[in-house]
Structures are given as C-alpha cells and as structure tokens.
Design a protein around this nucleic acid. Sequence first.
DNA 1: AATGAATGAGATTTCATTCAT
DNA 2: GATGAATGAAATCTCATTCAT
Lengths: 193, 193, 193, 193
Amino acid sequence: MTSKKKEKYAQILDAAQKVIAENGYHGSQVSRIAKEAGVADGTIYLYFKNKEDILISLFQDRLGDLVDMINASIRETRTADEAIRKICEIHFTQLEQNVDMAYVTQIELRQSSLDLRKAIGLAVKPYIELIEHILEKGISEQTFRPDLDVKLTRLLLFGAMDEVVTSWLISGRKYSLSGQVDKTVDFFLRGLK
Amino acid sequence: MTSKKKEKYAQILDAAQKVIAENGYHGSQVSRIAKEAGVADGTIYLYFKNKEDILISLFQDRLGDLVDMINASIRETRTADEAIRKICEIHFTQLEQNVDMAYVTQIELRQSSLDLRKAIGLAVKPYIELIEHILEKGISEQTFRPDLDVKLTRLLLFGAMDEVVTSWLISGRKYSLSGQVDKTVDFFLRGLK
Amino acid sequence: MTSKKKEKYAQILDAAQKVIAENGYHGSQVSRIAKEAGVADGTIYLYFKNKEDILISLFQDRLGDLVDMINASIRETRTADEAIRKICEIHFTQLEQNVDMAYVTQIELRQSSLDLRKAIGLAVKPYIELIEHILEKGISEQTFRPDLDVKLTRLLLFGAMDEVVTSWLISGRKYSLSGQVDKTVDFFLRGLK
Amino acid sequence: MTSKKKEKYAQILDAAQKVIAENGYHGSQVSRIAKEAGVADGTIYLYFKNKEDILISLFQDRLGDLVDMINASIRETRTADEAIRKICEIHFTQLEQNVDMAYVTQIELRQSSLDLRKAIGLAVKPYIELIEHILEKGISEQTFRPDLDVKLTRLLLFGAMDEVVTSWLISGRKYSLSGQVDKTVDFFLRGLK
DNA sequence: AATGAATGAGATTTCATTCAT
DNA sequence: GATGAATGAAATCTCATTCAT
C-alpha cells in the first residue's frame, strides 16, 4: 500500500468507528460510513472486501495498537509483577481515554455475526498470548507460583479485565476506570503467588 | 398462567434453545422455533410479546435455574470459601452438562441487538449480586480481606469464569470444564485473602 | 396446491408477463410485478423461489400450453403432413393472438442469464421431441423420406419457425404471421419428402 | 484509423471474445477485458464509445468475416444450388473451427440487452440479404420454384442453420457440425425446388 | 385459543464510465 | 495517448409481526 492508500484506509476505519459509536452496530450502514469518510460508497470496496472486512480490520487495528503499546511498555519493566501491572494499566487507561473505541470494541462489535466474532477472537489471541508469556516469565523467575496453569490463568486475567471494562461502559462511566487498576492488579498478583 | 399455559411456554423456550443451538442465532427464525415447538407462528405471540421476549425469557429462565441451584447449594455451606467453590463448581458443571444451553447463552445470544444484550445484562445481575453477597459474608467473617472492593471483585470473578466457559466452548470442548474448578477457585481464594 | 393457491400463482405469472411486455426484461423488477399482481413483494416469494423462478415458470407455463394445444390438435389429424401443418399453424396463430406472450418468450426472456436460458432450453425440449415424434411417424408411414435424420430435422423445423416469429415481432408485426403458415409448411413438406 | 490504432482496436476485440468465452457474458466486465488486452480501463473508451459498442463491434467484425468469406466463395460457384451449399458449408465449418467465436456469438452475446440485440440484428441483416440474393438468383435461373417467398425463405434457412449451430454447442459439441451440412442442404434444396 | 397467509421495510455490493494527472 | 482511482445508482430477498378465520 502506498502512503496515500494507507491514509484513505485509516480514514475509512476512523469513520467506521465514529459511525458505530454514534449509531450502534445495526445503525451503521456502509453508505453512512462512506459519507462520514467523505468517499463514495463504492470506494469502500476498493479498500475492503466487504462490510465485515471493515469491522474486522477496525477491531484488529485498534487491538493491535493496544498490544503494540503494551509490548513497548513491558520492555521497560524488570519484573513480571510490573509487567502485569503495566498490562492492566494500559488496558484500562487506553480504553478510558478512547471511549469511542472502547464502546465499539467492547459493546457494538460483539453483537456481530459468528464469523465476525470468530475473526475478532483471532485478533484477541495475540493479546492472550502476551499475557501467557508474562505468566511464564513470572514462573521461571520464581515470582509466580510454579503450579500455575498458564493456559487457564491467562483467561482468568483477560476475562476479569474485559468484564470490568464492559461493566464500566454499561454503567455509564460513572467512575474512573483507571482507578480500578490497583485493586485489580492486587487481586491478580495475590492469585498468581 | 394456568399449568397448560406454562407447559406450552416451556415448550417454546425448549424449542428456541434447540433451534438456536442447531442453527445459530441468525438462523433462528420465529417460524422455525414455532415449527420445532409444534405450534403455529402466530401462537408464539400469544405467549411472548415478540422475538426478543423469547430470547430474554430463555436466558432468564436458564440463568435463573443456575442461580436457584447455586443458592440452594450455598445454604449447605458453612464458610465463604466453600461458597465460592460451590459457585464455580456449579457454574462449570452445569454448563458442561448442558452444552446446548451453554452454547446458546455464552455464544449465540451474545451476538444479539443491544436492547437484548441489555436485558441479558439485567438477567445476569442477580448472579453478580449473589457473588457480591458471598464476598461480603467472607469479609464480615474475616475470611476475606477487609479492603476488598466487592463491587469490583464480583466482576473480576464473574468475568474470569465467563471467559473460561466461552473459551472452553470455542476451543471445541477438548478438555474438561469442571476440571478447571480447583485451579480457578485456588486463584480466586488467594486473590480474596 | 389448493385452488386458491393456484389462482394467485397464475395471477403473478400473468402480472409478470404484462410487466415484462410493457417494461422489458431489465425494467421488470420484482416489486413492479408484485404491484401489478396486487400482492406484496414478499408474497411473491411464497409462490416462487426467486425472480428467476418466476421467469422460468412463466416460460414453462406458456410453452406448456402451446404444446398441450398442439398435442390435442394433432390427435385429430390422420397424416403426418396434416400434423406438421397443425404444428406450424398453432405455433404461428397462437403467438399472433398473444402478442404479449410472443414478445416475452421470443424476445425478452432470451436476454436472460445463462442459467435461465438453460432452463428455458429444457422447457423447449418437449416441443422439439413432439416434432421428432411426428417426423418418425411420417417416416414409418412412408410419407416422409426414410433417410431423414430426425434429430437434425427437428432442429431445422423448430429453428425455422422460431426465426420467422422473432423476425415478425422485430419488424413490428407489419404483416400477418399466420399468413406465413402455408408457405412455411410447403417448404417443410418438400424438404421432408 | 492509423494502423497502430487498428491494432489496438483488434487487440481489444480479441480480448473481449476470449474473456466472454471464458467467463460468460455476465462475467465479462470492462476492466477484465482491459486487463486481458493489456491496456488500462480508460483506454477502452478511446477506442469504443461504451461497453455495448465493444460487443456490437465484436459481433459485426466476426460476422463480417463470415459474410466476406461466403461472398468470396460464392463468386466461384456456377449454380444457386452450389451457392446454397457453400453458404451452409462455410457457416458450419467456420463456427466449428472457431468454437470461442461460435460460443460468444451464438450463446453469450444473445443474453444481452435489447438495444444490443437490435444492433446484432442489424449486423445479421447483410447475411440474410446475401441468402435472399442467392434465392433470387436461383429463381431467375429457374433452379428454384418461382413461387418462393424469398423474404420468408431466407428466414427459414437462416433460422434453421442458426438453431443447428446453437444446439450443437449446447449439446457439448459431441458430434461433427460440418457433418450436418449435406443433410441440411439436402433439406433446403428440396424445399426450394 | 390457534392458525398461517400475507405483509413491506430496508441495505449490500457491483461495475460502467469519468477525468485529473 | 494512456492511466486507474473514484464514482454512485439501483434491486433482490428475508423475516418479524398481524389479523381474518
């Protein structure tokens, strides 16, 4: 992709996120996204295979950014404890700072067809594996219990954080999401040791 | 509702669960549910307000059974530790024994419209509150940490268990779900203390 | 099909023929046909699988009527000569008397997708075989040449008649189609002897 | 048109024939033809007014070649009988030797819009008139019946040959098309005398 | 109470054609 | 002369719900 192409690609994804955040998943027609992006309906199909492809790409792109950010941040940590804290901190902080993105990825995109949800599941995998990696590190460093089942525990951590974010959104964001980091991490670390 | 009414009501819910389990959320037309239930399309609307009402009722009914079962079981426990274990045990065991129900409530019904998801959220609330109740009991009995944030922690527990079940289903149920109880409860109890 | 069903079925086919005759193949949207038939768009799909199914059914129905009529008429003939004459006579007369039908089956329906044209080809087969049957009869009665290739000749007859009808329609029906019967049959019978 | 222009013009027509033969009428987008011809989409419009113009030109070009060939060949014949034979012989032989062209002109191009079919009708006219010319010659030479209706008969001959070719293609070319010449001409000549 | 035939709104996607470069 | 990215109109079909019987 040339830089010009990339620009329009990103432009359409941004438009999709905005439209979905404003109108909900079922109120987000391709024509609406096209209008918001300032392109013709047909142009969408020069950049995406179909509507589903827009949504998958949107999820992958946003989650990819999150994972990149976490990865970068983790490199600067020394201990697995710190890494776990970083993960939760960035997870909660980023979604708190990007409410549109949070709303779209946590709520709207989940009410999609099974195929789309499977694709979303695949996009989540690298994140889950990132958590697993930290768990293994913690075990080998003897920070975490040696009897931890990393495959199970990664799900416990991800599921717990995911539910907290969703609940925060549904409640109407009446409290600080990043304010939950300490207590959440505290719970996690106790469970890991 | 007369007993005869109740019967047909349950009959339609059972049909809905079967049809959704077999054909997925989007392949589950009202007419198909009617056919499976052995009634005419129009009859459905004598028992339910609309399609959404069937699905909400289905979710409420199934989850209600689960909560009832947990409540009954908890009454026989002495400590909060035991209660937490019972919750996870029944949660995992019941869904493992009712794959259709698990599949429908964990996977299919979640790809529904926002309104429906909100209603489902409401149906989950009693369960979440049940967990909260146990947590409070544990704190007052000085089994759990006094600094626990029960509102947050109930989400952590529910989200973690929920993710484990979903992941087990998506993976193709290649391992025992009830086999995860010990490790999951272990993780929880450490976090709670 | 009950009689009531049959009625609406025929009603839709009649509407389809009228709409196609008036607006051409590409101007004949399902919604237009539904409107002309006085039913809702969706009702069409209670009687036909899809749009193509309407068109195939229309062709089959009309051609079926023609073949039925010819079959009935042939039973009253003694010789193969007479039968050939009857075929041509009914073919030309019927299409002359039902210009809408002629226009739709000769011109409009032929500009359809390959699948539809294949289905139309199948519908024509009984007619072609009817001609073949007469040819065989003529040969066995020693009215026609014994060296006739019936598989080839049936095509020659059908193709010739078909072209005459199409040409008559495209010319704007400036002359009598039934007026071509004698000369056409004359040509055929000489070729057959 | 300069020679260079002519070249690209022919190049696009060849590409069109190939693409239609391979993908069918409805699978033949302008962009596909452009790609096959090795030019940009826009370039097509420097040589043809629109898509229809390509198809009409294609049909005219191919049929023109056939008529030219027949005309040249007829000049070498003495009698109208011989000429009729030549017409049928070249018609069948050429299409048998150029299956792509046969397929495109007999099957694919006929499922086109009415305007296109009318233009195709015009392209066929010189061929029909060529047949008419031979018929008149035969009558004036007293080889053919003086009571022949040449306007009608030319249609009978063309329609008959056309149907034979189409049927041969649809049947999957399981027999020799040129092998039908003798029997076809035999039928024609008897009818003409 | 039960039926089931009829309704009708609503959105994705394709592709011929244009025009700035 | 050549390019190819962008345009935007247009139609099938599904399915929740109703209501006359």
